[in-house]
């Protein structure tokens, strides 16, 4: 899968100074599967907007975005569901967890849709990220950092060509962030998938292919 931007810019960004941006100022930008991109920018520069456009949540932009040479605006609801089920996965900045479900149920909810991972694999990932003891707790009472890790595992419970991760380590310490990043890369590699990871500050993550400045 490739993602291609043609002079794409979200409408709210038009009112801002975007000089020097490698995304908003580019005539054409091609993101390729199998590569990992880190998008670094302070708040308000449109990191979430960028991912939301790719994921089809926002349509208020100028220019054109292509996924595999298909204009995103031409995709039907059904196609979007299919894409979100098997081509794109999103770790939302706002997490989008169901507070009334336990951490494990939040993960299983997605896995019931895709039947991608075994329960063992899910437990293994939870153990890796250090949230295994909290799996039976309601997501709503977990700390934000713990919730982030639940959201990461949930996003990994499906096939994808690109993983969109929106500031997914913002509430984790350096050590935990690196473990989570490792898991993410591991899963991406297993799928030969691309990664678009946004970060507020210098992420300083190993093995990234490109850094895009917004």
């Amino acid at each position: 899968m490739t993602i291609r931007f043609e002079k794409m810019i979200p409408l709210p960004m038009l009112e801002q100074d975007t000089s020097g941006s490698e995304v908003w100022e580019a005539d054409s930008l091609l993101l390729e599967q199998g590569k990992s991109y880190v998008v670094e920018a302070p708040s308000g520069r449109g990191k979430t907007s960028l991912l939301s456009v790719v994921y089809g949540l926002r349509t208020d932009y100028r220019g054109v975005v292509f996924i595999n040479d298909r204009d995103l605006t031409s995709l039907s609801m059904k196609e979007w569901s299919a894409i979100r089920k098997s081509n794109l996965s999103f770790i939302f900045q706002g997490l989008e967890l169901f507070d009334e479900l336990t951490a494990l149920e939040n993960i299983r909810l997605k896995n019931e849709l895709t039947a991608y991972h075994s329960s063992d694999r899910i437990l293994k990932m939870a153990r890796m990220l250090g949230i295994e003891p909290f799996l039976k707790r309601k997501a709503g009472i977990l700390s934000f950092g713990q919730q982030q890790r639940v959201a990461i595992i949930r996003a990994l419970c499906q096939p994808f060509d690109f993983l969109l991760a929106d500031e997914c380590f913002s509430h984790m310490d350096r050590k935990n962030s690196l473990i989570a990043y490792q898991l993410i890369r591991q899963e991406c590699d297993a799928r030969q998938a691309g990664l678009i990871l946004t970060s507020l500050n210098k992420a300083d993550l190993p093995n990234t292919h490109a850094r895009l400045k917004l």
Binding site: M77, S81, I83, F90, F98, L113
Partner: peptide
Amino acid sequence: DKIRRLSKLGFHYRE
């Protein structure tokens, strides 16, 4: 809210 969230997670409106 939940329905929108489910839709974001890739659930089709039929599901």
